[in-house]
Every structure is written in C-alpha cells, then in structure tokens.
Amino acid sequence: MQRSQATSAEDSVVNLLVTAGRLTRLAGAISGDDLPRAVLRALAVLDEHGALRVSEFARIDRCSQPAATALIGRLVADGYASRRKDPEDSRAVVVELTPAGRDRLHHARRAFGTALATRLSEFDTERLARMETDLNELLGALKKAAPRH
C-alpha cells in the first residue's frame, strides 16, 4: 500500500512539472513578448540566485559551459547582465543582473501574466491566490530539501 502512495505522489509531481512547463510555453506563445526563451530563463536564474560564476550558472541552467558563456555574452551585450572578476579567484568571472535586465525580466513576466489572466475569467482571484500559495509552499519545501539548488 505504501508503494502505491509513493507512486501516486511521484505521478502527481510529474504531472505538476509537465503542466508547469506547458503553462510557461503557452504564456510565451500568447504573450506577444519576443524575448527568446533561453534569455528569459537566464535572466530568471540570475534573478533567483544573484551573482554567479559562469560554471555555477551552467550547472543551474543545465547547459554546457561554452553555451553558458555564449548566453551570458548575449545578456552582457544587451545590457541585461554585467561581468566582473570573482574577488575570491581572479581567474573566474561573476555574472549578475543589471537594473535593465531586472526590468526586462519583469516586463516579460508581466506580459505572460496579462496574457494568461485575460483568459481566466472562470477563475476568481481567491482561487488563483490559493494556487499561488500552494505552489510557493511546494517550491519552498523542495528548496529546503535540496539547498544546493
């Protein structure tokens, strides 16, 4: 009996992940914001984690270091991120969001929110707030269990 409960919990988590991915892709498709998905993801990683070494960014984003370097180069060229020497290791580079990068991320997220919210007339504000609270609690629990993220 306990095994079926674990499988059921695993199935639910898988379904949540699949749905979250689909929700994000749908928001991007209907929002009208033209920010490439990789750039949006990179901005979000830097927003969540703060200043990172390129190697740490690559680990979190699950991309190769050359891909991370190229993506970060694009962010820097667009004015969305800045690079500086790591004070702990002068051979390493630390990357962080600029105010322009934070503003661009905010703009994209608002466009996503607006695009989805206008299509949710059957969902009242309280229902959406409960869903937000539940997802934030889930994220908090997972981060607590995997602090290296």
Rank of each mutant, 00 (worst) to 15 (best):
R110Y: 14
R91H: 10
L116F: 08
R148D: 11
L16N: 01
A108E: 00
A100M: 04
E48M: 07
A58Y: 03
H149G: 11
P147W: 06
Q2K: 12
V76F: 02
E56F: 01
R74A: 10
N136P: 01
S12R: 05
G73I: 02
Q2Y: 11
A58D: 03
T98V: 09
A51H: 02
H107W: 01
M131F: 06
E122L: 14
T69V: 04
I30K: 07
R53E: 09
V13S: 10
G32V: 14
S90V: 14
A111R: 12
V95P: 00
A68V: 10
P66T: 14
L26G: 06
R41L: 00
L35Y: 05
G79V: 00
N15E: 09
G79D: 04
R41S: 11
L16E: 13
V13D: 12
M1S: 15
A42C: 05
A9C: 07
P147I: 05
V18K: 14
D61V: 02
P66F: 08
L23Q: 02
R91P: 00
A67C: 06
S64F: 09
V54R: 01
R83Q: 12
K144S: 14
D47C: 01
I30C: 12
R109S: 10
D11Q: 13
F112R: 07
G32F: 13
V95F: 06
Q2E: 12
G50W: 04
Q5K: 09
D61L: 01
G73K: 08
A111L: 07
I72M: 03
L16F: 14
L16I: 14
A129T: 07
L142S: 05
C63M: 15
A146L: 15
K144G: 15
R102C: 03
L135R: 01
D11A: 13
A38T: 14
E88H: 14
R25W: 04
S12C: 06
S64K: 03
G28D: 09
A27P: 00
A38M: 10
A38F: 03
G73W: 04
A115G: 05
G113P: 05
T19Y: 03
E56H: 06
S55G: 08
R37H: 11
A44D: 05
R104C: 04
S55Q: 02
G73V: 04
S90Y: 09
G21S: 10
G113L: 06
R3K: 13
R83A: 08
P147H: 08
R110G: 10
A38C: 03
L142P: 00
